Amino acid sequence: MPDQSPDPGDPADDHLREHQLSSQELLRGHFLHAFRDTVRLPDGREALREYVRHPGAVMIIAQLEDGRLVLERQYRYPVQSVMLEFPAGKLDAGEASLACAQRELLEETGYSAASWAKAGVMHPVISYSTEFIDVWFAKDLTAGERKLDAGEFLDVFTASPAELLQWCRDGRVTDAKTLAGTLWLQNVLSGAWTLDWQDGARPGQA
């Protein structure tokens, strides 16, 4: 995957940068890969930085012909709650972003899409993770059969954009990626932000 950092290296930001001096692996689990680095601060002092390396993920804002959105209800163990979310999933090693979005939408919801548009990228937990999430829009949906992973349990449902916005406002939706995705959706629907749609029959091009 290409570098997903929001900072391409502008020399004007050198007074803010930290430089790695050493790195210690803390955990290599099935999913998490954690490190503790010693860094040199801009003023020359040293500090510790603990963080998780993440392979990146995708999120899909899929809209049916009637305008309703494809959403999920899934239990998230760390917060001990069932969360309302847009479909999303982790990139496999070497997997292109669009191919991942197509795979995750089909596996989790049973839908495939003929048209796709990459809206942008978000960094949900910049204080302790390298994770980035590519935000994809999908339309011209066709319903099919879900292919959930072993041990994966979730409900798929639909809601109108107005319902989703209300749930964000009243606190039913607290998932960061879904809140950010709703911002994108709101601006796309208003015409303030435009999308560059592509044929979904060409996976792996992004």
Rank of each mutant, 00 (worst) to 15 (best):
M1F: 00
P2Y: 00
P6K: 07
P8I: 02
G9S: 02
D10E: 11
D10Y: 03
D14K: 13
R17C: 11
E18Y: 15
E18A: 12
H19P: 08
Q20L: 13
L21K: 12
L21R: 09
S23N: 06
E25L: 11
L26W: 04
L26A: 06
L27Q: 13
F31M: 12
L32V: 12
H33K: 09
D37L: 01
T38M: 10
R40Q: 15
L41D: 04
L41W: 03
P42R: 05
D43S: 06
G44Q: 04
E46T: 09
E46V: 06
A47N: 10
L48M: 14
R49E: 09
E50H: 11
Y51V: 09
P55H: 01
P55N: 03
V58K: 03
M59F: 04
A62R: 08
Q63C: 07
E65Y: 06
D66F: 08
G67Q: 06
G67K: 03
R68L: 10
L69P: 03
V70W: 09
V70P: 02
L71S: 08
L71F: 06
R73S: 14
R73G: 12
Q74C: 11
Q74D: 10
Y75F: 15
Y75M: 15
R76W: 15
Y77T: 13
V79T: 14
V79W: 09
V82K: 13
L84C: 12
L84E: 11
E85S: 15
F86D: 05
G89M: 13
G89Q: 07
K90V: 13
G94A: 07
E95R: 00
E95D: 05
L98E: 03
Q102E: 06
L105W: 05
E107A: 15
G110H: 00
G110V: 00
S112V: 09
A114V: 05
W116I: 01
K118V: 03
A119I: 02
A119D: 02
P124I: 03
P124T: 03
V125I: 07
V125W: 11
I126L: 15
Y128N: 10
F132Y: 12
D134G: 01
A138R: 05
G144W: 01
R146N: 01
D149V: 15
A150L: 12
E152T: 08
E152R: 10
F153T: 09
F153R: 13
L154S: 10
F157Q: 05
A159T: 07
A159L: 08
E163V: 09
Q166A: 14
W167Q: 14
D175E: 11
A176E: 07
G181W: 00
L183K: 07
L185M: 08
V188R: 04
A192K: 10
W193Y: 12
T194P: 11
D196P: 01
Q198G: 10
G200A: 02
R202G: 06
P203R: 01
P203Y: 02
A206I: 08
A206S: 13
